[in-house]
Design a protein around this nucleic acid. Structure first.
Length: 561
RNA sequence: GCUGGCGUAGCUCAGUCGGUAGAGCGGCUGAUUUGUAAUCAGCGGGUCAGGGGUUCGAAUCCCUUCGCCAGCUCCA
């Protein structure tokens, strides 16, 4: 038997006889750390504590408190839940069960529907399995052997997954008599699972495709401690308490009524007042930032939407056309074509640029019935839209201006934290590579010069140009997409936009689309949830009330109110 | 759109085995004029989501349409 030397990033190192498991090694290397460990990183890859290193290696401990440890915990809890479901619903077939942002889920193919009351039963079985402290046992077998194993159990979903695995060997994990195809790693045993809760059951398409069968998905969450779980559940409760749909009704800000139609907002007087305050502020600031305001119609001839390409690429989100005097008209899903028509209404000189045109433009988009959600996802909404037409040499400066205005406005509403994304050229796109490079560089420069933290989403840009998206974070830490800044090479081309350059020749301007608040409806919803209904005084529809304590004070109350 | 759940007064909800609808809060009227979100009395308020069916009889059972909720898919 050989020997193996293992060291920790801390520098601690020791030599072991081959055949020792990581758990045993950690016991020697750092007993304190060993108690925290739920998994380990062996030369960079995540493994179980029961794994037996075969070569000299660097070993890192993955503790329960770390993000990776939490993921292991949740993934293991998902398996635990699956084991409980296997016991209660013997006919269940298993899909996948990953850890997600705030917990985990597992998808089951099951003929009988699982109800909310079943969640309690499943939790009880899980508790029992935790009490038994059953080990998660990893086994490596050949792909063919694994296929035999799962075929014998009729696990068609697992077989489908196996069919796409190219490795010759796969790992399965056994938890009692429940065996699951899984890469791992897992906790050593179920006894390590201390605080979990099953949250909901819902349908989910197998592998996320509408074409596939719908499975039943069970959501749950797990935390290192009861306290952390309680804190999370409290946060969920807090989010429910702040639900803008409830507060919006209670504060009499807006309503959505079946008679008017789903996804269509009726602004009540108090909501309309909040909206006006937002609009006034927004208009003033845009005026100061060198924008001019436009108004454009709600419908236009379908031909315009054909020319813009919306009819071709965006039709599934558009309402059906209506025919008037033999001509098809279309409710607008966007404002840009109108701004373009105004641009084209006269010859533009390089001296006219940049042109910054803003509009609080109400657009209508057909959204599938299942996705509508209060003010946050509707069928008619008002974008705080603007289009900037500029020369290539002005692009960077304009992006700067937009970014500065964005941050100023968002901060004014109390949003100080952002998640910013820069999306770059996708495979299918229009516009020359030189233009793309120019635009991407301009966006990136602006972000860097303002020292804003951002993530690059390679290839996630729209086909017509790169973009910056800004998500604001509310008091509960939830991120909401509001601002989008998009460079567009497509529409100027389709509408053949020109300006007369210094050289006397005609050139194509670059167009920037941008919305800062996104939509007024959605933004009001976010404000309500962020402030739990208690809007800052400058936005509050009721700032103060005078309450006389006796009839004799009424006249004075009238006087001062 | 799909899967599951749901739809009773303005709001929150009860309504048994199928026998023609109820509470609290809010509203209105009056009383009370007071040290803290909830004082007393009275009065209104319903197409039980819409339509169809079964039945002597439907809020209740069946079919269907619409809407809402959770999630999936897609997005401001």
């Amino acid at each position: 038997m050989g020997e193996i030397t293992v060291c920790l990033p801390t520098g601690a190192r020791a030599t072991f006889t081959a055949g020792s498991s990581i758990a045993e090694m950690l016991q020697t290397l750092d007993p304190v750390l060993a108690r925290e460990a739920v998994a380990a990183r062996l030369d960079g890859s995540l493994v179980d504590l029961s794994r037996v290193p075969e070569n000299n290696a660097v070993l890192e401990v993955v503790s329960l408190g770390s993000p990776e440890g939490l993921e292991v915990l949740r993934h293991s809890t998902a398996h635990l839940m699956a084991a409980a479901v296997a016991r209660l619903f013997p006919s269940a077939k298993f899909g996948i069960g990953p850890a997600i942002e705030d917990g985990f889920y597992y998808d089951f193919d099951l003929n009988e529907p699982i109800s909310d009351t079943d969640l309690t039963r499943i939790e009880e079985v899980m508790q029992a399995l935790v009490a038994q402290d059953i080990p998660f046992q990893r086994k490596v077998l050949s792909r063919d052997k694994a296929k035999e194993l799962f075929a014998a159990q009729g696990e068609h979903l697992k077989l489908e997954l196996l069919g796409e695995i190219t490795e010759e060997e796969v790992s399965v994990y056994q938890l009692g008599d429940f065996v699951d195809l899984c890469r791992g790693p897992h906790l050593p045993s179920t006894g390590k699972i201390r605080a979990f809760k099953l949250l909901s059951v819902a349908g989910a398409y197998w592998r996320g495709s509408e074409k596939n069968k719908m499975l039943q998905r069970l959501y749950g969450t797990a935390f290192p401690s009861k306290e952390a779980l309680e804190a999370y559940l409290f946060k969920l409760e807090e989010a429910r308490r702040r639900d803008h749909r409830r507060l919006g009704r209670e504060l009499d800000l807006y309503s959505i009524q079946e008679e008017a139609g789903p996804g269509l907002i009726l602004w009540h007087p108090k909501g309309a007042l909040v909206r006006r305050l937002i609009e006034d502020f927004w208009k003033d600031e845009h005026h100061r930032a060198g924008y001019q305001l436009l108004y454009t119609p709600h419908i236009a001839r379908l031909d315009v939407w054909r020319q813009s390409g919306h009819w071709e690429f965006y039709r599934e989100n558009m309402f059906a056309p209506m025919e008037v005097e033999g001509i098809d008209y279309e409710l607008k899903p966007m404002n840009c074509p109108f701004h373009i028509l105004i641009y084209r209404s006269q010859t533009r000189s390089y001296r006219d640029l940049p042109i910054r045109w803003a509009e609080l433009g109400t657009v209508y988009r057909f959204e599938r019935s299942g996705v509508l959600h209060g003010l946050l996802r509707v069928r008619g909404f008002t974008q705080d839209d603007a289009h900037i037409f500029c020369r290539p040499d002005q692009l960077e400066g304009e992006i700067f201006g937009v970014l500065d205005l964005t941050l100023f406005i968002l901060r004014a509403f109390g949003f100080e934290e952002y998640e910013i994304f820069l999306s770059t050229r996708p495979e299918k796109c229009v516009g020359s590579p030189a233009n793309w490079e120019l635009a991407e560089a301009a966006l990136q420069q602006a972000l860097e010069k303002r020292t804003l933290h951002y993530k690059v989403d390679p290839g996630e840009g729209v086909f017509y140009g790169p973009k910056i998206d800004v998500k604001i974070k509310d008091v509960l830490g939830r991120a909401w997409q509001c601002t989008t800044i998009q460079v567009d090479f497509n529409l100027p081309e389709r509408f053949d936009l020109k300006y007369a350059g210094e050289d006397g020749k005609l050139h194509q301007p670059i167009m920037i689309h941008r919305a800062i608040l996104g939509s007024l409806e959605r933004f009001l919803g976010i404000l309500i949830e962020h402030y739990a209904g208690a809007l800052p005084a400058w936005l509050a529809p009721v700032q103060v009330r005078v309450l006389p304590v006796a009839d004799r004070h009424h006249s004075y109350a009238d006087e001062i109110y």
